Simulated assay, not measured.
Amino acid sequence: MNFWLVKSEPDKYGWDHFTAQGRAVWDGVRNYQARNNLSAMKLGDQVLFYHSVTKPGVVGLATVVREAYPDPTSPDDPRWVVVELEPVMKLAKPVMLSQIRADLLLGRMALIKQSRLSVMPVRPDEFELILQLGQ
């Protein structure tokens, strides 16, 4: 199993939108590295849901329920893909970006090193620590 982090602006598509919907097609990604990360996601992989911009932090956990397929928002360009995600649980408390930056282990995450990337891998030790901090 692999671990990932996806970012979304809470005012545009936040955790509450996601859970109300029950399942999301993660579409509209137009960065090659993020696209490659979507392509690498496998059924059952765990995904940290991160609110960006406003009060940035990890707020929930999701799972991959459908692997990559062509992005329906880009029918004329087969380079872009989507995955489908379902919510698993909301964290008891958000793990804020400031906490992540301050932690010696988490400070090396792709989230810090490539802050503009919207879909990124997370190492197992980082994933476990974020879940602990969110309890």
Rank of each mutant, 00 (worst) to 15 (best):
N2A: 12
F3V: 05
S8Y: 10
D11T: 13
K12I: 08
K12V: 10
G14A: 14
W15Q: 11
W15I: 15
D16F: 12
H17M: 14
H17N: 15
F18Y: 14
F18H: 12
F18W: 14
T19Y: 06
A20S: 14
Q21D: 14
G22M: 13
R23M: 15
R23W: 11
A24W: 12
A24F: 10
W26C: 13
G28N: 13
G28A: 10
V29G: 08
R30K: 13
A34V: 12
R35D: 11
R35A: 14
N36T: 11
N37M: 15
N37H: 15
L38Q: 15
A40S: 14
L43R: 14
G44M: 13
Q46G: 07
Q46M: 15
L48T: 12
L48K: 08
L48N: 09
S52V: 05
V53Y: 09
T54N: 07
P56Y: 02
V58E: 01
V58M: 03
G60A: 09
G60I: 09
L61Q: 06
L61C: 06
A62W: 06
V64S: 03
R66W: 04
E67K: 06
E67Y: 02
A68V: 08
Y69C: 06
Y69P: 01
P70N: 07
P70R: 05
P70A: 08
T73G: 02
T73E: 04
T73P: 03
D77A: 01
P78W: 00
P78H: 03
V83D: 01
E84Q: 08
E86I: 05
P87K: 08
K90C: 05
K90R: 11
K90M: 07
A92N: 10
M96Y: 05
M96G: 02
L97I: 03
I100L: 00
I100S: 00
R101H: 02
D103V: 01
M109N: 00
L111A: 02
I112G: 01
I112R: 03
Q114I: 05
L117E: 01
V119W: 06
M120A: 10
M120G: 06
R123Q: 09
F127K: 06
E128P: 02
E128K: 01
L129I: 01
L131V: 15
Q132A: 05
Q132W: 08
Q132P: 00
L133D: 07
L133G: 06
Q135K: 09
Q135H: 10
